[in-house]
């Protein structure tokens, strides 16, 4: 760590740090400040009374938070199970196909998520792609598959699949071949190799992928609105309503703060344990 690199490091980090301080950290501080203001005020020149947090408990907003976190947790678990075999195959088995999958999966990220969710709406609704064709071929129809909790979780799984898949492939590619061969050489069977060697060595990828999907899914709103109808209200939906229809910034800020707190604790605890340089493949 010499003086020149110190200087270059600070100089080149400056624009980005400044951008994030002004447009990310500052708004968060503003939210924190508004969250302790009395109801329905639009400036910070008031005496804090924390009434918005009381409302969070009293009006049952915690239920929305519980739904958000619960559905995010289920979606994360499902994604781990769904993505592991694919990520494993992308690292170990597929050759050119890995590149094709990577490209095609990345490309879905460029399609607005509401368009993709809308695609599921017209696929799953009554008279949609599934029910419509089934009805016309077999004469048997069914009510649409939309507007329930499982379909919201389905939507979360669908939208956040890439955010689990890519960290997992990165994690799996961090397992040295020799470690697996050595374990087999010393008598470990397929399951023992998975449990004793692959899972712990891929842990950074698993942790980053799970954190990313959980956090994004916990703050998601489009899935519950488009696919779920009004089956359940999620916390981000409440935040949005408070800011827009309710015109109650302190309430919206308090609700956002609760979500932010939960997320921050998760992120801070996790990122402290993961070495970013290693996960991103720094050459030592």
């Amino acid at each position: 760590m010499n003086a020149r690199e110190q200087r270059l490091g600070i100089c080149s980090s400056l624009p980005l740090s400044a951008l994030l301080l002004l447009t990310f950290i500052a708004p968060l501080l503003a939210i924190a400040a508004f969250s302790i203001m009395p109801a329905k005020v639009f400036t910070l020149a008031h005496i804090p009374d924390f009434s918005a947090y009381a409302e969070f408990v009293r009006e049952g907003y915690w239920k929305s938070l519980a739904w958000s976190l619960g559905m995010a947790a289920v979606a994360t678990g499902l994604l781990l199970v769904i993505c592991w075999p694919l990520a494993y195959a992308m690292v170990r088995i597929f050759k050119r196909f890995t590149l094709i999958i990577t490209l095609l999966v990345v490309m879905t990220l460029f399609v607005s998520e509401n368009i993709r969710l809308f695609g599921w709406v017209i696929t799953l609704m009554k008279g949609g792609l599934f029910e419509g064709y089934m009805h016309s071929w077999t004469g048997i129809g069914f009510d649409g598959l939309l507007y329930n909790v499982p379909v919201i979780i389905f939507g979360l799984v669908y939208i956040y699949l890439p955010f689990m898949l890519f960290p997992l492939t990165q994690g799996i590619s961090m397992i040295p071949d020799d470690a697996r061969y050595a374990a087999a050489d010393m008598g470990a069977n397929r399951w023992q190799i998975f449990k004793e060697v692959e899972l712990p060595l891929a842990a950074p990828g698993i942790v980053v992928g799970s954190l990313l999907t959980f956090v994004l899914a916990a703050g998601a709103v489009a899935e519950s609105k488009l696919l779920g109808g009004q089956a359940v209200i999620v916390i981000s939906d409440d935040v949005e309503s408070a800011f827009t229809y309710g015109q109650n910034w302190p309430l919206g800020s308090a609700l956002a703060m609760v979500l932010i707190m939960v997320i921050s604790v998760l992120i801070v605890v996790t990122l402290m344990k993961v070495d970013l340089d290693k996960v991103m493949g720094k050459v030592k």
Binding site: P27, A218, S236, F243, G252
Partner: peptide, 13 residues
């Protein structure tokens, strides 16, 4: 790692 809806609202405010 931040929910975009919340980020958007925070920026609006």
């Amino acid at each position: 790692f931040f929910p975009q809806t919340v980020l958007g609202l925070a920026l609006l405010m």
